[in-house]
Amino acid sequence: MLTTVIEKLKLHFSNSILDVREFRGETTICVNKADIVKVCTFLRDDESCSFNYCSDVCGADAYAPENRFEVIYNLYSLSYKHRIRLKIFVDESDLHCPSVISVWPGANWPERETYDMFGIIFDGHNDLRRMYMPEEFEYFPLRKDFPMMGVPDSIPLPRK
């Protein structure tokens, strides 16, 4: 089933697909950042793909000079019961990437979480606020250069 999906993607988006990887039976497709919404819409609407459930959106920090951040989309098809993973790369100099909430409204909170933890800005998101950290927090905790014990006094404690 997945082979059809990959073939179709390659056929329709030959310029947007950067790489197709397979590891332990899991397929990951690296996609051009600008085309992610198009690819996602196709994956959702196409008959033989039918990825109608976006199970998670998360981020990763490779801490590399180029393509430092990754945004990862884990998709699932409730009708065919197959999974796929999409990946886009976000550079530190330009932290913007398109939001997929127009494709799956359920991606709203996962994208907020990714913003909260990595500082990646999802363009077109309707409510990009902090999720776990306090509103006035200035840092992004899951970045590799964030100290594990946090920045002293960055979150005020109540007075004793």
Binding site: Y132, P141, F146, M148, G150, V151, L157
Partner: peptide, 9 residues
């Protein structure tokens, strides 16, 4: 405790 991390007092 075991949470020696930025988020836990």
């Amino acid at each position: 405790g075991m949470y020696r991390t930025y988020s836990v007092v």
